[in-house]
């Protein structure tokens, strides 16, 4: 489904630091239906990657859609993706437009 978003882009964040280092707001049943990045912490993996930006809306995490997921569930999906030892990276499908 994400591939049909004309303005979406896939960003790979390598787990290069002990934290991911992003803050997100939004989720299903809120004013911001998909999680949006509101902060990127210096020194975190996301900051080191250099491609994730404040304002990016996260559509998918490692191919899992966040559409329809409430805030805590979306946050859990991202946290699990960072925690798992199976991959040394997380693939975020993001868009700059709401």
């Amino acid at each position: 489904p994400g591939l049909l978003e004309p303005t979406s882009c896939l960003i790979r964040v390598v787990k290069s630091a002990p934290t991911l280092g992003i803050a997100i707001e939004g989720g299903a049943n809120t004013r911001q239906p998909l999680p949006r990045i509101v902060t990127i912490q210096r020194g975190g993996s996301a900051h080191n990657c250099g491609k994730l930006k404040v304002g990016h809306v996260i559509l998918e995490v490692n191919g899992t859609t966040l559409r329809g997921k409430e805030h805590r569930e979306a946050a859990r999906v991202i946290a699990e993706a960072f925690k798992t030892k199976e991959k040394d990276h997380i693939d975020f499908l993001v868009t700059e437009f709401n």
């Binding site: 280092g21 803050a23 997100i24 707001e25 939004g26 004013r31 911001q32 912490q41 805030h71 946290a79």
Partner: peptide, 15 residues
């Protein structure tokens, strides 16, 4: 659109 306005703001989570 009116429905949107009634939706609550989201909490923020640091990950």
């Amino acid at each position: 659109r009116e429905k949107r306005l009634t939706l609550p703001p989201s909490e923020i989570t640091l990950l």
